[in-house]
């Protein structure tokens, strides 16, 4: 199945929850913010969300800014 990750299509080859998916992308899970289908999801909810085809994910982090 396919999900949209930060605007580009990403393949998900097996069933996984959001936490597993993010880990597979080698992200520092402590410092990222995730929007799942336009809804902000808290860290403790990540392993309860099973990815579905066509899900839309936005993964953000803090960067330098003024």
């Amino acid at each position: 199945m396919e999900v949209v990750l930060n605007g580009t299509v990403a393949n998900v080859d097996k069933e996984m929850n959001l936490w597993e998916f993010l880990l597979s992308k080698e992200l520092d899970l402590e410092t990222i913010i995730v929007e799942y289908n336009e809804v902000i999801v808290k860290k403790q909810e990540w392993n309860m969300i099973i990815l579905q085809d066509k899900d839309r994910l936005e993964v953000l982090k803090f960067v330098g800014g003024g």
Binding site: L5, N6, G7, K25, E26, L27, D28, T31, I32, I33, E58, V59, L60, K61, F62, V63, G64, G65, G66
Partner: peptide
């Protein structure tokens, strides 16, 4: 101290600005 929020660019990973902000600072995201 101010910080900004951006989409992660999976093609060119960068460091994490938060690692360099001393604890106790009041964060002001813009």
């Amino acid at each position: 101290i101010t910080v900004a929020l951006r989409r992660i660019d999976f093609n060119s990973p960068t460091g994490n600005v938060m690692d360099h902000i001393p604890s106790g600072m009041q964060l002001l995201p813009n």
